[in-house]
Amino acid sequence: MLISSICNQVLAQQKAPLQTLKIKNTRELHDFFKYTGLDVPIVSGHRGGTTKGFPENCIATFENTLRHTPAFFEIDPRLTKDSVVVLMHDATLDRTTNGTGKVSDYTWAELKKFKLKDPEGNVTEYGIPTLDEVITWSKGKTIINLDKKDVPLAMTMKKLKKHNAAAHVMLTVHTPEQAKYYYDNIPGVMFSAFVKTKKELEGYEKAGVPWSSIMAYVGPENKPENKEMYDLLHARGVMCMISAAPTYDKLTDPEARKKAYQQTFEMGADVLESDLPIEVAAAIQAQIPKTSKKAKYFNRNTQAQ
């Protein structure tokens, strides 16, 4: 009976509707990331949000996360030998697939024969997706945030234009120069920008990239020193993001992780990026305001929590 009950729960979860982000255009995307002081805490799935049976950078993993909570996803585009853009964090295949060697040494046709591994190293049924597939899938469901790997800026720019995707695809930028290039070429583009110091903040202002186009990554730790940056960025209407992937996600005690996730928002962050977005969403339920103008962007299914 216990086994049957568990199986029924798994099947029910697999059929659960996706909890999407309802963003129709670039104006709404900018509004979604605008700091107001009365905002809904935002969860970002780092590489999609991996869990047993679900690999990183995989559409099935994105959908598994969305069956539990609305979220957006940081993903990793890389180039194949024949210049197809696929999703892969590492430059090599060994850690995340049953293949070996460099991604750039294989054509797309050759990469299709490999399967992705879950975080425990188990080979799954899922193949490596292309960026085109993920952009098409994500429209009307969520936002994808493209990290900067080995894809040239001009190629990334052409992808967004090809798919008319500026309303649901944002770009991680490490420098004001990268942001300025995209801003000058893609109307309405939104950035996840590295703004961890006052010097970096000044650099974006000198580059002429408007703060309405920026969500700021301020670092991987909750620390009192962050407050100065939070205050400076919030005054400009900019939301601030902490990434727990290299820090709090690594804590072995679930209660310690829960406390760290909650403290991230208590100390002033607005967005939390995590390898464990389902766990984060559960931890911060009490921190979601009962009323907020931003609630209209979140399509939640409370039964799936």
Results as ranks from 00 to 15, higher is better:
Q305I: 13
E273Q: 15
L38E: 11
L272E: 12
L79P: 03
R95L: 14
V85Q: 04
A245D: 11
T97H: 11
D275A: 04
H30K: 15
K158G: 02
T264L: 12
K141F: 06
E56S: 12
K296C: 04
V43I: 04
V218I: 14
W108D: 12
S5N: 15
R47Q: 02
G101I: 10
T107Q: 12
S212Q: 15
R78L: 03
V10H: 01
S192H: 15
G49F: 04
T92V: 11
P77G: 01
T252H: 07
D132T: 03
T156R: 06
E221P: 05
P187M: 02
N299R: 08
M170K: 14
I186W: 03
Q303A: 15
S138R: 10
G37C: 02
T175S: 14
L21M: 02
P55H: 13
N226G: 04
D253V: 00
H30W: 06
D231K: 04
A282G: 03
V209P: 05
K198M: 15
L131Q: 03
P119Q: 08
D31C: 07
N185P: 00
Y204C: 04
E56W: 13
I6P: 08
P277H: 01
M1D: 12
L2I: 12
L131R: 03
S192V: 01
T142G: 05
R257Q: 11
K259V: 02
Y182F: 15
E202Y: 04
D150C: 00
K159Y: 07
N164A: 07
V209Q: 07
S192I: 01
K223G: 01
K24N: 11
F54P: 05
I288T: 00
G188Q: 12
P41V: 01
D118K: 11
G49C: 11
N299V: 01
S212C: 14
E120Y: 15
L21Y: 00
Y261A: 02
K149Q: 03
L153H: 13
Q287G: 03
Y204Q: 05
N185A: 10
N301A: 06
R47F: 04
K117Q: 08
A167S: 15
V40K: 00
A179P: 06
P246Q: 00
A60G: 10
D82L: 07
N98S: 13
V271T: 09
I23D: 06
C240V: 13
